[in-house]
Amino acid sequence: MNDSADLHTLTGAYALDALSPAEAAEFARHLAECPACSQEVRELRETATRLAFAVAQVPPPGLRDRVMWSLPEVRQLPPLVVEPVVVPLRGPRWRQRLPYLAAAACLAIAAGAGVWAVQAQRDADRARDGNIQAEQRASDLETLMAAPDATLRTGSMRGGGGATVVSSQRLGRTAFVYHDLPPLGTARVYQLWYSQNGSMIPAGLVTPGRTDGAQLLAGGPRGADAVGVTVEPSGGSPTPSGPPVMVVPIPS
């Protein structure tokens, strides 16, 4: 009785795959004889699925082809009432392809990861070093992402890498979310600018040495028609010293 009462409480852990293999096997046996737990696990799995939707990201363009191309080589199983098990890819063919996988960097990394990343990072910051600045920055970015009028525009950088510019006129904030920026060494730095009627207004420097990250621009997007990126001497410049390596328009 006691054991069984205890088992009933495992529906949540089971639905989240948080049991050890032995416990999961035992609970699976229990499920076969406990309709209440079965129903609950079904519902909690559907709930967990919503947590997955919330972190969806844009798959890199090559992934679809890689999957589609491999289909003819995969024999399909006949129907059978057995829970399927995912088999890891093995074999020389896949190993050859791994470098491509690794190279296909996380393109326009996306998505909803944001909200949780903010929460998780904020907790981590708080717990580990009480980094109030980071918390504030995360919180500002989170607010910006959640703004109902936030727009997202994506661009690629000459020479590699790319970025998404998130801006909200209502909040008067803009974020620059970048990935795979080509490294510049120590003497130079990426500088951000608002473009407004042809003039360039300094909007901050990308943290030197970072190739992936997110940051808020100094100043707001009001009146600006684009965000530009230039390569400048370390410390930045009052005006661009060369043509932009990327320009991302901001909808007004």
Partner: peptide, 9 residues
């Protein structure tokens, strides 16, 4: 810094 993965759909 704050976080890396914020671009979104």
């Amino acid at each position: 810094p704050a976080f890396d993965e914020v671009s979104e759909q």
